[in-house]
Write a protein that binds this DNA or RNA. Structure first.
Lengths: 192, 192
DNA sequence: GCCGTTGGCTAATGACATTAGCCTTTGCGT
DNA sequence: ACGCAAAGGCTAATGTCATTAGCCAACGGC
């Protein structure tokens, strides 16, 4: 019997793809094994268990998101940077409905790459705040606020929480403009 | 063998309590049956299946949340109302870590009480916006923004997404102040 | 080519959800 | 009181998924 030629990277990547198709909570070892054309227990040669797989997918998704946010922020500042990062954030969540929820998992302290990815994602937010002149403790509060707004919107949207027909993209634009206003008047920040 | 004397209300209420203790995703018919002192299949006399139970718990939690938000908003307007509702929102989520995620489930259209509860919860937000002079389409956008901020913060907090030691309550206060600023400058609103 | 490691497999176990079918209790109408 | 239908328990059986144990072939370095 020929080998399937799997390794952890392939398994985790395919798991991420599967999650995008069936949804994060329905990412299952059984479904993944079927899709990879191996028997279920074979997966245990590449991941410790189902939780560990979820953690690995989380690390992958977090790294991807961090990269896209960083790219969006590059070469921009202030309102420009905010708009670009916000757009990248929502875009990632919409393109990857299964991976996105995975990014909300707290990084496994034992996985340095995961931790770093998380820091890079948050770092993109801090970079924006720097452009608004917000630093120190104020930046901690502001970063929490920005993350809350972005994550809240995107997760409500994904959950189908916005029932009315009013255009969701427009609501997001308004939210980001409001965020811009709020950051300009943030304690410790510099108004435009 | 004497009867346990269950009915749907008791089962759903106990399920909500169990969810608060073990977490929403670990709400399981098996654990619920054990806690109620009956065999697992007995629960099927009171709920159609596990999904239906989850939907019922969602309806209960949504109704509770709506009631607390409405109470908080009563007799207040503007910034006052915003602060009170925001405090009630976070308070509910912290007191009911299992029920809160359930409120994010889209109401079952076939359950009128669930639908009404959802409308009442959103209604509390609209009442606040009214106090800021925001109505019509603008209110739809603003309501989405307010929900995003509140839900985003509260769910990040619950997920342990705020790693730094900085006081979380203070960050929340700042977010609400920022929301106040944003609502005052909202398109269609009336600045203070 | 030999041999240890690696990566597959099957089989067995255990949690949970679900359905079928039985049997007792309950309570209502007479 | 009584009879009886409905309601509310139960056990047993099935299916899915996660996990562990243990087997065996393929691969790679020497």
């Amino acid at each position: 019997m020929p080998r399937a030629g799997l390794n952890q990277q392939i398994v985790v990547r395919e798991a991420a793809r599967l999650a995008d198709e069936v949804g994060w909570p329905r990412l299952t070892l059984a479904a993944l094994a079927a899709r990879l054309g191996v028997a279920l227990p074979s997966l245990y040669k590449h991941v410790r268990n189902a939780d560990a797989l979820a953690q690995k997918v989380s690390a992958l998704a977090t790294a991807e998101l961090a990269a896209e946010l960083t790219t969006a922020a590059a070469g921009r500042a202030g309102t420009d940077a905010l708009r670009a990062v916000a757009a990248a954030y929502r875009s990632y969540a919409l393109r990857h409905p299964g991976r996105y929820p995975a990014t909300q998992q707290v990084p496994d302290p034992a996985d340095p790459e995961h931790v770093t990815a998380g820091e890079r994602a948050v770092g993109a937010i801090y970079a924006i705040l720097h452009g608004y002149g917000i630093t120190g403790d104020d930046a901690v509060d502001a970063a929490r606020g920005v993350r809350s707004a972005l994550h809240g919107f995107v997760s409500l949207e994904a959950a189908g929480g916005f029932g009315l027909p009013r255009d969701v993209g427009r609501s997001y634009d308004h939210l980001i403009e409001a965020l811009d206003v709020a950051l300009r008047s943030w304690p410790g920040g510099r108004p435009s």
